[in-house]
Design a protein around this nucleic acid. Sequence first.
DNA 1: ACCCAGGCGGGCG
DNA 2: CGCCCGCATGGG
Length: 282
Amino acid sequence: MLHVSDFSLRHTIESGQPLTFYSRYSNHAGTEHLAYVTSEGEINLSLKGDRLSYRFNGNYTQKTAKNEVISRLGLDDNLPDIYRQINTDIFMAGAIKGFYGMRITKNDPWEASLCFVISQFNNLKRIRGIIGNMVSEFGEDLGGTKLFPSAQALASADLSSIRACGTGFRDKYVKSVAEQFAFSFDKRKPYKMGYEDAKEKLMELDGIGDKVADCILLFGYNKLDAFPIDTWVKRVMERVYFNGRKRTIKRLHKFALDRWPKSYLGYAQQYIFWRGRENNIG
DNA sequence: ACCCAGGCGGGCG
DNA sequence: CGCCCGCATGGG
């Protein structure tokens, strides 16, 4: 058990991050539950008030499970300090108030990559469905629960069976990215690279462009200086900061860099995204 | 029926 | 560089 503060499991889980797509979340009588699987085993969380307890199996020990939970849910980020630094205006203040405790999750780079390749020109409900189909179709069976599908499994699958999961035209991107993660791309490298170099590296992959690369860097490599701009973030920023005028992605990136601390850009983005989407602003 | 969704690659000027 | 297009699929 550990005590947590400034933490909302619901906002963290529901806000379009990889865990949104492959975890089970529920709330019974004021106690929230979250279950998900990693290559090391299953994690089961319960949150009541500020008490976060966790159960685990597989290779986890008390210590490694605790580290997994803290790191995965972003509990090691200093949220009060982040809020102080990104709270530059009324819109951000509203986002912080409305979604207080929402954190950036830290996920496996391959898992983040697959989720965000699927996300292109898509919506949250369908992404969740497609990832779910892929887990049951291609995930290794652990006797009851299934693992997130490996890059190797998808690399050796044929296009039609990938497409049968509902990917649509993204089938070729899924296979291509899976092949590279399985055979040539060293997913450990970007951890040691700066944001710019790592992004350039990721964008060499077919099917990974500017926005998806930023998502992978933010949610997969824990690079909080990434600022993904999707249709929601673009529209909201144009409306809130540019009086409704159209702006290029490049210019919006520059605006963000000038306005918020580089090391917290990812958090600023996540609050813009989720308030924009949940309040249907834009 | 119509519109949109956590975009990308390719082609054009 | 900026702009435009086609791309599958399902829900509002």
